[in-house]
Nucleic acid binder design. Sequence first.
DNA 1: CAGATTTAGTTTCAAATGAAACCTTTTGCC
DNA 2: GGCAAAAGGTTTCATTTGAAACTAAATCTG
Lengths: 154, 154
Amino acid sequence: MKRAAAGLTLDDYLPYRLSVAANAVSDLIAGAYHARFGLSIPQWRLVAVLGEDGPSTQQALCARTRMDKVTVSRAATALGERKLISRSPNAADGRSHRLGLTGEGQALYAEVAPSALAYEARLLEAFSPPELETAHGLLRRLELAAMALAAKMD
Amino acid sequence: MKRAAAGLTLDDYLPYRLSVAANAVSDLIAGAYHARFGLSIPQWRLVAVLGEDGPSTQQALCARTRMDKVTVSRAATALGERKLISRSPNAADGRSHRLGLTGEGQALYAEVAPSALAYEARLLEAFSPPELETAHGLLRRLELAAMALAAKMD
DNA sequence: CAGATTTAGTTTCAAATGAAACCTTTTGCC
DNA sequence: GGCAAAAGGTTTCATTTGAAACTAAATCTG
């Protein structure tokens, strides 16, 4: 990893590399899911989590998907309009809604999930399982380090 | 890497992990550079590349920084207004502008570059040099794989 | 060398984003 | 219980983003 005169090389600057790689992958995935299922990334994340974990509240979904509550609210509204999720009032708490996949939503999930995995598999063809394990670990640690540093800056 | 009933686990889905990690890091960096130097990420990338490689055209900067030409145009306008870069007409091609750091821009670069590295160092404190080497390699390969797959989808 | 095409860059427009204000219900706390 | 503070969601607003249309200059092609 060579560094230029002033010490900084954009290409070797990890926040840059990370951003570029993430954008390339995100654009690819976003395009695929929009074209195939009419889902935005926030919407697809909600479907994935509801399919995976079962019904939940928006607040829980925010924590689970690391998305803003505004983003979750809008994705939930859109999915509700498409009858992919139901939003029943939460008996336990009058402020919140209980979200769950409808039958149609479950059918979509059953189709989307394998497709997502197949797409991931194609993207990651050239990576060995240990490499992927390493990648996951590094990404998690990076995320934690960034959050820790952000917290330290208050 | 365990996978749920339907085979999909959001937490183990690499595009998701990548996006979350990149957002965490980007938000951190964006906040730091905005607070300290009043630079957006596109602006700071232009300053970094112009400081690193010397004068250039916008088109070259697009390729170099992987940013959209609209984004580069706007960042260049803003930096021009702050007199951090000069935009002289390009003798060789009447359509394009030659961009370069002004004296003030160079002074800023001389301050920003070490600060960026110091910040990166704090973020990456917990990573060993070989781990960072690995991370860079994996990110580059991911980026290439995503672009290759995108091209294949035309 | 005159038109057709491409390229550098800007502008316009519509969509996505998230911070802040807001409404409603719940939870402390006296 | 009653009132202040907090929490779940939604709405509003300002900002960011990039696709598409546009302008002007350069390059092909015949």
